[in-house]
Design a protein around this nucleic acid. Structure first.
Length: 409
RNA sequence: GGUGGGAUAGCGAAGUGGCCAAACGCAUCAGACUGUAAAUCUGACGACUCACGUCUUCGAAGGUUCGAAUCCUUCUCCCACCA
């Protein structure tokens, strides 16, 4: 709260990609300091995908920085838009939600968000509060402030339009809705990913038109997901969720490419530039193995969303299973029931694999065996038709990650 | 309102009577190499069967045919353009 203006500015702008504008932000910081009131920093969330992942964490971290400087976060849950959905059918994640679903998602959202944000410096707002009661007249008045050409200027709209792909009117309206939210909550600043730039700027425009001081717009980098190419998103399934078990957070983090890990250090862990450059040079000089650098990342992530002890445990477990090739300490079990056995007390390997959940069908089991992915105990299975004499505790392994332990009934 | 185009496996997209369980690309899964890296290379990729093979699938329902993703009829849904 007492940080000097310049210092705040430095900290807040560090990771920003776009900032409109630095001067304006500075001025706002000064006036709020003088009037002794915090800035209102707006951030919008889509309640249709209630799992918060590391991509969101980038934004949340930045919000937290604002809070650390004494400012207030206005966290908007887009329940109204969530209930309308996206009729273009392009995206399955945009199915309309029921009121109950939205409420449930919003609740789980808050619970996750407050693992990063300070509750006492956060206002939660549901945009249905002001959008639902709006009459059509108001909606039309609102849309009068924006031209089609303006909307078409947005990158993905212009691309789709040029490619003769559908753009529904609702999609056109969404940016307007988001901009109107800014007016309603009297935002001083709005944050979003770089893909939100257009929408954020529209909020600025609309505030001006409606007689408010325009919000400062700040965009943050998008982080690529596990595939290393596409931005992290739930619908692509390339994400690390903050509610995932420590083991999964760790394992997924280990699978990202070396190039990408620095971005995670900076934007998800919030490491400063010096610390990152230091580690980078150690990796470059060979002092630190890249694997170990990534282990630090993965451990820190697991620790952040669980705790130190759990993080250390998964790191060790990981080393044992994947570096040393040993069996994990815990794995699913399959109780061998009599119907799996033939007359001589043996069970077909394929049947065991299907029953144990290692694969979905016999055909798949066969493929895995033929490709040399399957081990019975220590022995590699080579025969598709192999029979196994079940022994209590015997482990069947499929691929790098599939394990099942047999239990006799 | 008019004109044209389209619906094929997780996605994209070929295929216009038998050689189609359906090219190719992406994604996925496995193997090799490794650090569970990434990249690369190799293989697999509807179900059932040891296998010969059998069964279900090309928007839906009917029909023509020895034989239909492919032809005909009706229906459903989608898109672009012109107004």
């Amino acid at each position: 709260m007492t940080k000097a203006i310049e210092e705040q500015l430095e900290l807040l702008a560090e990771n920003a990609v776009d900032l409109f504008s630095r001067e304006e932000l500075k001025r706002k910081l000064e006036t709020t300091r003088r009037d002794n009131r915090p800035l209102r920093v707006k951030y919008g969330a889509d309640p249709s995908a209630p799992d918060i992942h590391l991509g969101h964490v980038v934004g949340l971290n930045q919000l937290r920085r604002f809070q650390d400087c004494g400012h207030t976060v206005v966290f908007i849950i887009g329940d109204f838009t969530g209930m309308i959905g996206d009729p273009s059918g392009r995206s399955q994640t945009r199915k309309p939600l029921t009121r109950e679903q939205v409420a449930a998602n919003a609740l789980s959202y808050q619970e996750q968000v407050f693992r990063i944000l300070r509750r006492e410096q956060t206002e939660i707002a549901f945009n249905s509060n002001w959008l639902s009661p709006m009459g059509f007249e108001e909606v039309i008045r609102l849309s009068a402030h924006v031209t089609v050409a303006q909307l078409l200027a947005r990158d993905d709209f212009s691309k789709r339009y040029a490619a003769n792909q559908p753009i529904s009117l609702v999609e056109f309206l969404y940016p307007l809705v988001q901009a109107y939210d800014s007016v309603k909550v009297k935002a001083d600043v709005e944050l979003g990913g770089t893909d939100q730039l257009f929408n954020l700027l529209l909020g600025r425009e609309l505030q001006k038109v409606m007689g408010q001081e325009p919000q400062v717009v700040m965009t943050l980098p998008l982080i690529e997901g596990l595939d290393g190419v596409n931005k992290m998103s739930k619908s692509l399934g390339n994400y690390i969720g903050i509610n995932e078990p420590a083991k999964d957070i760790f394992g997924k983090a280990m699978s990202i490419s070396d190039d990408l890990m620095w971005k995670y250090f900076r934007l998800v862990l919030g490491w400063g530039r010096e610390a990152i450059e230091q580690l980078q040079s150690e990796v470059q000089s060979g002092t630190v193995h890249p694997r170990d650098a990534k282990d630090r990342l993965a451990t820190a992530l697991a620790a952040r969303f669980h705790d130190e002890a759990a993080a250390r445990a998964v790191s060790e477990e990981f080393r044992r299973v994947f570096s040393a090739g040993q069996a994990p300490s815990e794995m699913p079990e399959l109780v061998v029931t009599p119907d799996l056995l033939d007359g001589e007390g043996r069970a077909g390997l394929m049947a065991l694999m299907v029953a144990g959940g290692l694969c979905a069908s016999n055909g798949e089991a066969k493929r895995l065996i033929q490709q040399g992915a399957v081990k019975i105990g220590e022995e590699k299975a080579t025969e598709v038709q192999a029979k196994v004499v079940p022994v209590d505790g015997l482990i069947i392994k499929s691929g790098k990650r599939g394990f099942v332990r047999l239990r006799l009934a």
